[in-house]
Amino acid sequence: MPAQRDDSQARGTAPVHISVDRAYTDGPQHEVKIRARDVNVFYGDKQALFDVSLDVPEKAVTALIGPSGCGKSTFLRCINRMNDTIPGATVRGRIELDGEDVNDKAIDPVILRARVGMVFQKPNPFPKTIFENVAYGARIHGLTSSKAELEALVETSLKKAGLWGEVADRLHQPGTGLSGGQQQRLVIARAIAVSPEVILMDEPCSALDPIATARIEELIDELRHQYCIVIVTHSMAQAARVSQKTAFFHLGKLVEAGPTGEIFTNPRDSRTQDYITGRFG
């Protein structure tokens, strides 16, 4: 293991790795929010990510695509250190959020996760009321000081998630009683309620029907003006529709990344070409 580590560090500065990532520049507000350098992830003895270096722009949607098991979800889980919760997982390399290494000892995972929200593949509302689901983050982090403030926060969050109109009259019914698409928007509202800077989405639409998917995609498009969003998706069409930047992963390596339009119209790597044209995956 140490040998591999030294190896990766030695190669860390090598320009070849950075060259696969073309910056997304569409104005000054899209400065780099997350900067990943030579990220390697091991699950026990198995290496899941190899020397991934990627820049994620602020106030834009970055899509991670690639065949199953290519490491895109693993990369996503590095950003808010959710890999810490998996026994035997080790992460090496640097991931900077606004210039701070998230794996630094001084960074607390609790604070980090309050700053980096996450939405999962399967909607996972807690077995509580809709109100309590959204209020959960505020309660554990002690964000609000009065009941009125909390109610206001829940309302804004639900409005931002585009769910307010549908649930305003039944805030105190269980969140698990909603439809799949509504549940997923509830989970997004729950994540928004703690005012995160980044929202990670791990295939948020794969368990939903096309209509619900369309609503979530609309929502993502609205949210990108305020947040840095990273989305893992299986659907190339979705990546093309919602993202500004796309990164293609294959067998644990970052093959190519760049502005979405370029990746889909003019891929530089033949593997990307094969994948987006449906030859494998």
Binding site: D108, V110, I111, A114, R115, L143, T156, E197, Y227
Partner: peptide
């Protein structure tokens, strides 16, 4: 439509205080 003005440092300090 700009994000609502969140005072990020105050917010983080609040979190850290409770931590």
């Amino acid at each position: 439509d700009a994000a609502p003005p969140i005072d990020k440092t105050a917010f983080r300090q609040g979190l850290e205080a409770r931590l």
